[in-house]
Design a binder for these strands. Structure first.
Length: 546
RNA sequence: GCGCUCGUAGCUCAGUUGGAUAGAGCACUUCCCUCCUAAGGAAGGGGUCGAACGUUCGAGUCGUUUCGAGCGCGCCA
């Protein structure tokens, strides 16, 4: 049991002895910011003084007087009532130091919460297979993958999914564009339309078609039309997978829009919704009555020309995901898709699902500044900051850390020059360096027996580390609940800071005091383990030497 | 006009379901390697938390109004 859980129990029991029943989840235990306020504190006396019909301070005194009769109370060294009615707890050293052996015993799995039996599907990136990834995808990939990792650690059964939009207009344009580039290679240039893709990557694809098939697809036919599209999708998707894998992002499942549409599935779904009264015709188009639930406007699902809108197969796709037995769906989308949230939740509600079965995580746009000028992203002009360039220039570790360091809901101004020039002062190195320092100490002192009880730890810098290490599992729980990768980054930064401070203040390897050194090396080992575990959640490496 | 997301230090951003003296990085000033990795540490300057009311023991946090920014607003994906 963690210190926090124990304290909650003590408080609940004390309140109970005054006839006040508190749920442990309603009791807030905070880490004291200032050591003068002890190790942990609670506002329970203030929060619930009304129930006791007493002043906060009097109620606090009552609670404290009841603690002594509690057998759990042995872990507390001292209690104080302070300020408007805070109760501050000073813990016994061995209770705090207990975390060292726990971390070392659990090792790579310290921080992993018990399996909760819940299945969650995280869909992210889902970039159209019509070109390369750009900066926006990079942030979504980092956020989506990290959220998946956090949920995995928090006990969920996680599926990472990529939805492949291999139908629709943009795919036609892809086929046309490749065909034009292909003809170009034979000296028969075809004009590219405004909506076609002008990126140079398609020239390479056309070349590989020429290399493999020669001039077999020069004649204009349905067969060659289909061929260019199929070849293009495979080639583009292959590149996406490769770039993402190099970014340490892999998917468990790729779902193709063309499979979702198979067998008239979309029409069937629409008809089923029509029977429920959620579908109507207007101006020659077909609409879904999403306003019956959360939306502020009804949405078109079949256009005047008889083709489905993007939304129509997406309805089926989300039903498909639910039918696969997930307790929770998470869509990680660009913030410009915010209008999509209530639309999709409404769709789920039409089938009787809870709107909470879907959580849409919006990732705010990245604004790029290069040479002091904002660079606008545009997939079609080919001038966008490509994901691949970014990773080559700055490195996977730094990019992944940088892109989850801040909440996904905040805009991110990315100074490309700075990231390239000053990559060595990037915060990610601060954390990695802390890990490398720990490893170096452990290597130099490998012959010294570790005291995994941390018996001799007593300095303030040591106690701060102990408390922070103990917070790791509950940090994971909170980050999972809030889908907040940046909390992991914040945790890492704080741990690294504590490690550096500890290192600077103390001569850790002291062969004249092997007992103390043994305690400290055990602490160092625990720090290395937690740094490694937390960095792994972000997809960032933990080098042993730098 | 309606909706969503935001507004905290010069810049980029944290701020634990409302808590004690609002923090970090970058930038700036000044110190610290005869000694375990200086990609580090210590100290300092820098804030009417966009603004105004309200809710209560207590508001950066919650509510209303207002100003400003970004993004969306039925047949693009």
């Amino acid at each position: 049991m963690t210190a926090e859980e124990t304290l909650k129990k003590i408080i609940a029991k004390a309140a109970s002895s005054f006839g006040i029943e508190l749920k442990e989840e309603d009791i807030v235990i905070e880490r004291s910011k200032d050591p003068i306020h002890g190790d942990y504190s609670t506002n329970a006396a203030m929060k619930f003084s009304r129930l006791a019909k007493k002043s906060p301070r009097d109620f606090a005194a009552d609670l404290v007087s009841a603690f002594a009769s509690n057998e759990e109370f042995f872990c507390v060294e001292k209690v104080e009532i302070a300020g408007p009615g805070f109760i501050n707890f000073f813990m016994k050293q061995d209770v705090l130091a207990n975390v060292v052996s726990k971390v070392i015993e659990e090792g790579d799995s310290f921080g992993r919460l018990p399996r909760n039996g819940k299945k969650v599907n995280v869909e992210f990136v889902s970039a159209n297979p019509t070109g390369d990834l750009h900066l926006g995808h990079t942030r979504i990939a980092a956020v989506g993958d990290t959220i998946s990792n956090i949920l995995d650690w928090a006990g969920y059964d996680v599926t990472r999914e990529f939805y492949v939009n291999d139908c629709g207009n943009q795919i036609e344009h892809l086929g046309n564009s490749i065909r034009a580039r292909y003809h170009e290679l034979f000296g028969e240039p075809l004009a590219l339309g405004d909506d076609d893709y002008h990126g140079e990557d398609l020239i390479a694809i056309a070349k590989s078609i020429k290399d493999q098939y020669g001039d077999a697809y020069l004649k204009d036919s349905q067969e060659s039309h289909d061929f260019f599209i199929r070849f293009g999708i495979d080639a583009e998707l292959g590149k996406l997978k490769k770039d993402l894998a190099e970014f340490r992002v892999t998917f468990d499942k790729f779902t193709y829009e063309s499979d979702i549409r198979k067998g008239g599935n979309v029409s069937k779904t629409i008809e089923a919704l029509r029977e429920k009264g959620y579908v109507y015709e207007s101006d020659g188009a077909t609409f879904l009555k999403t306003t019956a639930f959360l939306d502020d406007k009804d949405r078109p699902i079949v256009k005047k020309d008889g083709l489905f809108t993007y939304f129509a197969p997406d309805i089926c796709y989300h039903y498909n995901k639910m039918e696969r037995g997930y307790d929770l769906l998470i869509d990680v989308l660009g913030a410009d898709h915010h209008g999509y949230i209530n639309r999709l939740k409404s769709v789920l509600m039409m089938k009787g699902y809870s709107p909470d079965a879907l959580d849409v995580e919006l990732v705010q746009i990245v604004r790029v500044y290069r040479d002091g000028v904002e660079v606008k992203m545009s997939k079609r002009t080919g001038k966008a900051i490509a994901h691949r360039d970014l990773v080559e220039d700055i490195g996977v570790d730094a990019v992944r850390y940088f892109f989850v360091e801040r909440s996904q809901s905040s805009h991110l101004d990315f100074n490309y020059n700075l990231a390239m020039e000053q990559s060595s002062s990037n915060p990610v190195y601060y954390a990695q360096y802390a890990h490398a320092r720990c490893c170096s100490l452990l290597s130099l002192g490998q012959d010294i027996p570790l005291d995994t009880k941390g018996s001799l730890l007593k300095e303030e810098s040591e106690m701060s580390i102990l408390k922070h290490l103990a917070d790791f599992p509950s940090m994971i729980e909170g980050a999972a609940k809030e889908r907040a990768p940046h909390k992991v980054a914040g945790y890492i930064h704080r741990l690294a800071e504590l490690v550096h401070e500890f290192y600077a203040k103390n001569r850790i390897l002291d062969r004249n005091n092997l007992a103390l050194t043994g305690s400290r090396l055990a602490l160092v080992k625990a720090c290395a383990i937690v740094l490694r575990n937390s960095l792994r959640i972000l997809g960032v490496s933990a080098p042993e030497k730098m």
